[in-house]
Amino acid sequence: MRVLILGCGRLTTTLVPDLAGNGTEITILSRDRECLESVSDIPGVEVVLTIEPTMQDYLQLAGVDTTDIFLALSDDDHRNALTAQIARHIFNVPKVICHLDNPQLQILYASLGLDVVGYSFGLLQDIRQSIEK
C-alpha cells in the first residue's frame, strides 16, 4: 500500500512510525527540512522537500497519481483543502483524508464529501451529543 502525506508536523511524525513497514510505503511532501530529516531514516519512508508543496507538479513528483491514500496533514487548512481536492478530483486517489483546524471549514468540506479530521470537529460533535443526552 502506498501512502502520500502532505505536511511534516507532530501529526505526521507521530503517525509515520506506526504506519511504515509491513509493505506500506510512505512518501512525505513538506517544506520543513528539519522535520523531514527526523523521519527520513525510518524504513519504508521517502521524503520530498519543496517550498511549493501544493503545486500539482510537486504532488505528481511525490507520486499522487499512484498512491492509495492521500493524507493532507499540513498545519495550514487552506493548503490541506486544496491538495485534498486535487488528489480526489484530478488524480482520483481512492482514499483522501483532510485535516482541518477551523470548525467552519470542517463543516463546509465534510458537506462537500471530503473525509475531514480535526480536533475541534470531534469536539463539536461531542458537545452536540452531550447536549442531546
Binding site: D77, H78, A81, Q85, L108
Partner: peptide, 10 residues
C-alpha cells in the same frame, strides 16, 4: 491558490 479556492467554495 489554496486560499482563493476556499473563499470561492465558502
Amino acid at each position: 491558490d489554496d486560499t482563493n479556492l476556499v473563499v470561492c467554495q465558502m
